[in-house]
Simulated scan of single mutants.
Amino acid sequence: MGEKFASRIGYLIRNFRIAADMMQKESADKCRLNESTIRNYELGTRYPDEATLLNIANNLNVSFFALSDSDVANMFSTLHVLFDIEWAYGLRLTMKDGEV
Rank of each mutant, 00 (worst) to 15 (best):
D29W: 01
Y47L: 15
Y41W: 00
L43F: 08
Q24Y: 04
D49K: 14
R46D: 01
Y41C: 01
T37P: 11
M22P: 06
D49W: 04
M22C: 11
A20S: 11
D21A: 09
C31L: 14
K30N: 08
E35F: 06
G44W: 03
Y47T: 10
E26W: 08
N34T: 01
R46V: 09
P48S: 03
E26D: 15
E35G: 00
E26Y: 01
Q24P: 12
D21V: 08
N40V: 06
D29M: 13
L43N: 14
G44H: 06
Y41K: 00
T37M: 11
N34F: 07
P48W: 03
Y47C: 14
L43Y: 08
C31H: 11
Q24V: 10
E35V: 12
E42L: 00
P48T: 05
I38P: 00
R46G: 04
Y47N: 14
L43P: 05
E35Y: 07
D29Q: 09
E26C: 04
T45K: 15
P48Q: 06
E42F: 10
E42W: 05
K30H: 13
C31W: 07
N34I: 05
T45Q: 10
C31Q: 11
R39A: 11
E35T: 15
E42H: 07
T37W: 07
M23E: 10
L33D: 01
D29T: 09
T45L: 13
A20Q: 08
E42I: 08
S27A: 15
E42T: 07
L43W: 05
Y41H: 02
Y47H: 10
S27D: 01
E35L: 08
R32A: 15
D49P: 02
T37K: 05
A20R: 03
A20W: 00
